[in-house]
Design a protein around this nucleic acid. Structure first.
Length: 436
DNA sequence: TCAGCTAGCACATTTGAACAGA
DNA sequence: ATCTGTTCAAATGTGCTAGCTG
């Protein structure tokens, strides 16, 4: 296994997220300071990953003391503005699909996790401003536990039910467009709809590993760096949005969440009231089955509907079909359909568009020594690459993920990347730290 | 007994290859 | 020969449900 300090020994350990330094930069935007405290502010799990960032001209300023997260979901008032923790002055981020998130949050967001990995819905879709248009940045997403409790659905609400399970290996999702110029990231909303969540601790695909019935919070990190393995990283900004807090489940507990997901997620169209798989239709099918073979449907398959589902550009994600206003909002912000990438990334897109619709083809070809995704004949797509990293020295009391028989201690799953770091669209395993 | 998990199912959407026509 | 638009099949993403497990 690798630790970033081993990968980048020349970088030292001088740059870390942490409490504000005396005399540190005070450019932290006040508006963004109104948020919640990172539960693990003192030991951010990205430490080992980000410690290689070169100390910039400014000292990293951490968020000021903030109130703790509320204990339960579904009852809290409208959440405050996003919290930010960064050393990139002037950079701010906003949640594009905030209304949808708030709708879920008001009920108590649940995210299905499966062994094979399940996408998040709603997905995190953000807009960023204040970047240097010429500089290159990486966009990362991770998910951290909100508290040390396990939760249980009590028929009407979620309530704490005992102590949380030991923290699992931390993984970071790297946006497929990374690295790209500031101009590219600011051109259109950045969507993390391809992030997958799993409850399989031996997950070989690099999906983000979570415990079921626990409360989590996604975080988005912006790192200024020319390349994924750059030795000249120029700062980091971390953001999180309180309304994106969710409880991981293997089956939905709150029927209101189920209804919201069905109403908002294009992939669940078949379960809507007027769909072919609504309860009435299902019952009718069962009856017909008992009587005899089902007649062939005469209606054109999916006719009349405008495709509005997730796409793979940064604009993609949870377009809410039932809410045309919401669906059109990003287009108002970006009048002309922008190319998926700008600068060198746009070049890569033109040369290898598939790279932005699944496999990162703009990178070196798939390493044949790595296995295919076990559940598919196709090469592992966006989750193709990740890196298992050993917890840092003195960093973790948490035992490293038990090495599965199917994969080596460190490797790039389905890796098109011959280098020991994850490629765009991949996941970085940064080890973990004990939380409780 | 029961809460939680898993696998299989049907349906909708996405994606890319193949093809036809300009 | 090239470009554009259409069609189609396979892959993938959904929630539902029955059965299993601890």
């Amino acid at each position: 296994m690798y630790h970033p300090r081993e990968l980048y020994p020349s970088l030292g350990t001088g740059y870390r997220l942490g409490p504000p330094q005396p005399g540190g930069d005070s450019s932290f935007p006040p508006a963004l300071a109104e948020g919640y405290r990172y539960p693990d502010l003192d030991t951010p799990k990205l430490d080992c990953f980000l410690s290689g960032i070169e100390a910039g001209p400014r000292t990293l300023a951490a968020a000021p003391p903030l109130p703790l997260l509320p204990p339960t979901l579904g009852t809290e008032p409208a959440p405050p503005a996003a919290e930010a923790l960064h050393s990139l002055p002037g950079v701010s981020m906003s949640l594009e699909n905030q209304e949808l998130w708030k709708e879920f949050s008001a009920v108590g967001t649940e995210m299905i996790i499966t062994k094979a990995g399940r996408r998040m819905f709603p997905a995190c879709r953000v807009s960023v401003t204040g970047l240097d248009p010429e500089a290159r940045y990486l966009f990362l997403l991770d998910v951290v536990p909100v508290d040390g409790a396990r939760y249980r659905w009590q028929g009407r609400r979620w309530e704490p039910s005992g102590k949380a399970e030991p923290r699992l290996p931390d993984r970071v999702y790297i946006h497929p467009d990374s690295p790209a110029t500031g101009a590219h990231w600011m051109l259109q909303p950045v969507s993390f709809h391809r992030v997958k969540l799993t409850n399989s601790t031996l997950d070989p695909h690099g999906h983000l590993i979570l415990h079921s019935m626990h409360k989590y919070q996604p975080r988005i990190h912006l790192v200024r760096a020319a390349q994924l393995c750059s030795q000249h990283w120029g700062g980091v900004a971390s953001f999180r949005f309180p309304e994106t807090t969710f409880i991981s489940v293997t089956a939905y507990q709150n029927p209101r969440i189920t209804q919201l997901k069905i109403a908002a997620n294009p992939f669940a169209k078949g379960f809507r009231e007027n769909g072919r798989n609504c309860k009435r239709e299902r019952d009718a099918r069962v009856k017909r089955k008992l009587r005899g073979p089902e007649p062939v449907a005469t209606e054109a398959y999916g006719s009349g509907d405008t495709p509005g589902g997730p796409c793979d550009s940064t604009l993609g994600g949870d377009v809410r079909e039932s809410d045309p206003e919401q669906a059109s909002a990003p287009q108002e912000a970006v009048p002309a359909p922008a190319p998926p990438c700008g600068g060198p990334s746009a070049e890569a897109y033109l040369l290898h568009p598939a790279a932005f619709h699944g496999a990162p083809n703009h990178l070196p070809t798939r390493n044949p020594t790595f296995p295919e995704a076990p559940d598919s004949g196709r090469p592992a797509p966006y989750s193709a690459a990740f890196l298992e990293l050993q917890p840092g020295p003195g960093g973790s009391g948490y035992p490293a993920a038990p090495p599965g028989a199917s994969f080596a201690p460190h490797f790039l799953q389905g890796g098109p990347f011959p280098l020991p770091y994850p490629g765009p669209g991949g996941y970085l395993d940064v080890g973990s730290k004990p939380m409780y």
